[in-house]
Design a protein around this nucleic acid. Structure first.
Lengths: 187, 187
DNA sequence: TGTAGCATGTAAGCCGTTACATGATTGA
DNA sequence: TCAATCATGTAACGGCTTACATGCTACA
C-alpha cells in the first residue's frame, strides 16, 4: 500500500542492487549486514542485525525483494535478491526525491559547548581523544577505499569513500586548530 | 531511579545551565526550544516542541530542573530553572562519560553511492543543490557566530560555531572537487 | 570439546516525530 | 477582526536498539 520506504530501506535495497550487478545468487541477511558495515556505516548507519531482517521482510512484502530458500545444509537459510519492481522503486526514489540536509549528532562538539563547566584541560584531552578516534576511523575507511581501487564499476563508491577520507582529514585539521586555541588561551 | 539521561536531555539541561549564569528568571519550554534552534541544531538536533516539554517534565521528575508557575496573565505558564542537583548531574556527565563518535546521516553521500543508477548529470545537479544548501546553512550559523562576538563568557560557544563554519567550508570544497571529477570524467 | 563465526528471528522498550487540541496576546 | 506568535500539552506511531533465544559448521 504505502510505497514510501525509509531511507535505511532504500540504502539496503541499494546494496542488494549492487549485488544484483554481479553473478551472485543473492545475499543472506547476515551478508547484507556485513556490506552495510563496510560502506554504509561511514555516512549513514549500521543497522542492527534484527533490523536488517525486519527491513528484508518488509521489502519482501512490498515485492521489492525476493527470497530464495537455500536448503543446502541442515538448516534452511535464505538468499535475498532485488526484483524488477525493486529496481524500479530504487530508480524512482533516486530520481524524484531531493535529498534532505545531512543530520549530524556530534557529542564532542556538544560537550565542547559546555567547556566552561569542564575546563580547558579536560576539553583538550577530550579533543585529543577525538583526533585519535578520527585517525582510527580514517584507517578503516582507507582500507575500504583501497579495496575499491580504480575500477570503473565502483567509481561512485570510490568518490564517496574519498569524500569520507577528506571529511576525516578536515575534522582533524579543525580540531587540531581548536586544540591550539585552547592552549594558547590558557591563563 | 535511573540517573542515566539521554544526550538530548543533557543538551537541554546545558542550555538551562547557560541561562542560569544570567540573571534570568528561567526559560519557558517555548524559549528553550528557540535556544535549541539557535545553537544545538547545527551539531546535535532540533527537538520537536512536544519533546522539549516531555524532556522538561522528565528533568523535573529527576529534580534536575524546577518549574516556577507564572500566573501573570490569564493562562498559567511555567519558567524552568536548573537546580543544584541538575548542575551536579551535568558536571558529572561531562567529567565521567567519554563522548561517542559522531553519527552522520548523509543522504547526499548515500545517493552519490548509487550514482550509477542516476547518472553523472543527475548527480552533478544534486551536488550543486547540496552546495547551495550548505551556503544557506553557513549563513545562518554565521549570524549566530556574529551575535556571540569575542565575549569571554561565550568563548566555548564561539569555538563550536567556528568549528561548524569550518566544517561547512570543508564540505563545500570537497563537494566542489567531486563535482569537477564528475564533469571531467564525463564521456 | 568448546568457541568463534554463520544464520535467523522475536519481544520489549525508548527516543523522537507528526498530528491533534487548546487558548492567550499582539499588532496589522 | 484576523493572523501570527507565544505557550502548553496529549496521543499515536514508527524506527531502531538491546536483550533474548536458537541452532549449525568449522576449527583449534
Amino acid at each position: 500500500m504505502s510505497q514510501g520506504l525509509t531511507t535505511t530501506s532504500y540504502a539496503l535495497l541499494g546494496l542488494l542492487r549492487f549485488d544484483d550487478a554481479t553473478d551472485s545468487s543473492g545475499l543472506t541477511g547476515y551478508e547484507l549486514k556485513q556490506r552495510a558495515d563496510n560502506t554504509l556505516r561511514f555516512y549513514w548507519v549500521s543497522p542492527a542485525m534484527s533490523q536488517v531482517y525486519s527491513e528484508l521482510s518488509r521489502l519482501t512484502r512490498q515485492s521489492y525483494v525476493e527470497a530464495v530458500a537455500d536448503t543446502g545444509g541442515g538448516r534452511t537459510t535464505h538468499r535475498y535478491r532485488i526484483t524488477q519492481a525493486g529496481r524500479d522503486a530504487l530508480q524512482a526514489w533516486l530520481a524524484t526525491q531531493q535529498p534532505e540536509f545531512p543530520i549530524l549528532k556530534h557529542p564532542v562538539a556538544l560537550r565542547l559547548l559546555m567547556g566552561r563547566l569542564g575546563g580547558d584541560k579536560a576539553m583538550a584531552s577530550m579533543l585529543q581523544g577525538y583526533i585519535d578516534a578520527l585517525a582510527q576511523r580514517r584507517t578503516e575507511l582507507d582500507a575500504v577505499r583501497d579495496r575499491l581501487g580504480q575500477r570503473e564499476a565502483v567509481r561512485y563508491a570510490a568518490m564517496v569513500a574519498d569524500w569520507g577520507l577528506a571529511y576525516y582529514d578536515a575534522e582533524r585539521d579543525i580540531v587540531t586548530e581548536l586544540l591550539g586555541r585552547l592552549s594558547s588561551d590558557a591563563r
